[in-house]
Design a protein around this nucleic acid. Structure first.
Length: 285
DNA sequence: ACTGGATCCTGACTGC
DNA sequence: TGCAGTCAGGATCCAG
């Protein structure tokens, strides 16, 4: 389940085999994806074009083409992008294959088909493809004042706020739990209850944890692999996620699991005390 | 306006 | 052994 660090690691791994290469042909499965495949735009702007750069936007992988269009891939939960020698037999759930002029083909494999393939045409508004995106956690705009402003007057659990792409991009279920644990904030705390100090901790720890996860090659819970098919190893450094009943590495209290917004959320009742009942300061409009 | 729940999907796992 | 049910979660839609 790729979040920001996994997507970043995949992007970096794609660069050596993609930048400067030309996509000579493309083959797609007829399986229905979350979003319909933009067949016309793919043939008009992507196939036959050279790849100028590979970059990450939120959890999207973006290939900048010399046509000034972008190929935009989202991995959803189980998506993978891997290279194979051209002509290798396709596997089940290979939904797209782009043949390159270096004898390789780039494949998009997605078991659950929650991922997407889109084209950002030249001149098109990026919001059409990316949607409404908040700042990247590594940008200076992502700071305590900004988060406090976003949270003011809101009763939404802080964990759900952190997972909202319109507030901040790239933080998913695993890292939200980890960031809040290190910050000593209970995930169920209404976002509007947090102090500026707590937001500052969350900002600092978000960057620390995401950076550390990138350095570890990401987190592999079940099926994530990078573009070379290698697993990450940050899962060995997770302190609470997936560790219900185990001792908290900081205070030794057993880690608890709750469901917030339909998502499994892990926390330590010792390090992250239950939220109090203070009234929320109402948002000014 | 805001929030929580349902939905999409397949495979791994559990319990009977 | 085989079947049914549950769970996993990113993004989006919808109802209250």
């Amino acid at each position: 389940m790729p979040e920001l660090p996994e997507v970043e690691v995949i992007c970096r791994g794609l660069v050596p085999n993609l930048v400067g290469r030309t996509i000579t042909a493309a083959i797609f499965s007829h399986q229905k994806m979350r979003l319909p495949l933009p067949a016309q735009q793919l043939s008009a702007w992507i196939t036959g074009r050279k790849i100028k750069a590979v970059r990450r936007v939120a959890k999207f992988i973006v290939l900048d083409m010399d046509s000034s269009a972008c190929l935009v891939v989202h991995l959803g939960m189980t998506g993978r992008l891997n290279f194979f020698p051209a002509g290798t037999a396709p596997a089940k759930h290979d939904h797209a294959r782009w043949l390159l002029d270096n004898g390789l083909e780039l494949r998009f494999h997605d078991t659950r088909r929650f991922g997407s393939i889109q084209v950002l045409a030249p001149g098109e508004n990026p919001a059409e493809v990316f949607g409404e995106l908040g700042p990247d956690p590594f940008r200076p705009e992502f700071n305590a004042d900004y988060l406090a402003g976003q949270a003011r007057g809101r009763a939404l659990p802080v964990k759900n706020l952190l997972m909202d792409n319109r507030v901040v991009t790239g933080i998913g279920n695993i890292y939200a739990s980890e960031i809040l644990h290190v910050s000593g904030v209970n995930p169920a705390t209404p976002a509007g209850h947090l102090s500026l100090q707590q937001w500052q901790k969350i900002v600092t720890n978000s960057r620390l944890i995401l950076k550390a996860a990138i350095a570890c090659g990401g987190t592999t819970i079940s099926d994530y692999v990078n573009s070379r098919g290698e697993k990450g190893y940050f899962q060995t450094r997770l302190q609470v996620y997936g560790r219900e009943g185990e001792a908290c590495p900081i205070c030794q209290k057993p880690i608890k699991k709750v469901r917030l917004g339909g998502r499994a959320s892990y926390y330590c009742p010792g390090c992250q005390p239950e939220p109090d009942e203070r009234k929320i300061v109402k948002k000014r409009r």
